[in-house]
Design a protein around this nucleic acid. Structure first.
Lengths: 208, 208
DNA sequence: GATGGCTCTAAGCGCTTGCTCACCCTCGGG
DNA sequence: CCCGAGGGTGAGCAAGCGCTTAGAGCCATC
């Protein structure tokens, strides 16, 4: 195994679970292409070209272009849900758990904004069954955040008149980072994460 | 002039400035198609079909499919900037102006989520010159919101450690409404606007 | 009632798309 | 040294793409 590679996402070996290597190279190429130009504007020739292979090679590892998108979306949503679950189960006060959830979720959307863009904005390109599977994962992410808010309200830490609406707003705020974040911009993923965690805590704080 | 028409966007005659009628019908059809399937996945035959015309009719009123997108994007961004500017110039305290800006901006993204989705998410499909023109409008929208925050901080109404970052977050929060809002959902545009105005005011409030 | 200018259509051009297929290369096991 | 299996390729198919063109219908003007 060669030394850890840094990807365009700034993560270490984020697609390690995808084997064999040719399949992983194609998937990484697809993520880049989908993020840059969108799923529908990306051709199988473009994906194969980025991976240094012929168009036909794609179909050895994936049945269709849509299956490629599904693999990407599935892995990304699994990761996102894992981050939120880890924060929610991490212990500490509700405020600490909420801050950690926002921090790590935002950081993931910023560091992996290439991947996140595909994961968050190309959902409609999935077929019905694949989309249903992904939507269920998203439902669980929402439930995880809502749970933290409910805990905080119960313990008197938070003042949240509309828990479902605020849950939606918090997730929405984090997700939209993928749209505007620019790796060449002024802010690092950590800085954005810290800023957003602060803003979210203010949104739910009890007014003294 | 005929009686006010209600569109899928829930706005009154939002495309009244587009003439002749055939051009407007094509543009409305394009908005729906672009919002549903995305610019690249939409065919000129689909647009023309929705408008009840032949594919060739499109090219009488618009040079290319991209010009259609540009007209939509331009009109939408003009409207968005007008909303924000009206709120910023509306008088009252900074908090009142900020709340009104968020309320109307959110309401527009919810009521016209079809249009807003095209306006906010299909920017990359524009050609370089058209995109530059739109980006300038967006810069002015950002500046308008930032001005309200700066005023509020100056007057001691707001506590905002990071004005540019918070400006970005506020706009981001509002824009993302276009992604998740569903007209058949539980909330009306007015309710979302009120909720979001409250959340944003909490984000900038001085802590007592 | 011929004319010229618009709007719109039927047909289709040249090209690209997602995907397939016949075949080739490499390489470990008998 | 041959073989079979599986990853890879070049060529190409049917379908669909954005867009064009020749001409039909309409209507105000002279």
């Amino acid at each position: 195994m060669r030394a850890a590679e840094r990807t365009a996402d700034g993560e270490n070996a984020p697609w390690g679970e995808v084997t064999p290597e040719a399949a992983r190279k194609l998937l990484v190429a697809a993520v880049e292409a989908f993020a840059e130009r969108g799923y529908h504007a990306t051709t199988t020739r473009d994906i194969a070209g980025r991976a240094g292979m012929s168009p036909a090679a794609l179909y050895i590892h994936y049945k269709t272009k849509e299956e490629l998108l599904h693999r990407i979306s599935r892995i990304g949503h699994d990761k996102a849900l894992a981050l939120l679950t880890a924060a929610a189960d991490g212990g500490g006060t509700a405020a600490q758990r909420l801050a950690e959830a926002v921090r790590s979720f935002v950081r993931w959307h910023a560091e992996g904004h290439t991947t996140a863009r595909v994961v968050q904005y190309e959902l409609d390109a999935l077929g019905p069954e694949h989309r249903a599977e992904i939507v269920e994962l998203r439902r669980r992410s929402t439930a995880t955040v809502r749970r933290i808010l409910v805990d905080g309200v119960r313990d008197g830490e938070f003042d949240v008149p509309d828990v479902p609406g605020t849950t939606l707003a918090v997730l929405s705020l984090c997700i939209d980072v993928a749209r505007w974040f620019n790796a060449a911009g002024a802010r690092t993923p950590d800085e954005v994460g810290a800023l957003y965690a602060d803003l979210v805590l203010r949104m739910v704080a009890v007014r003294k």
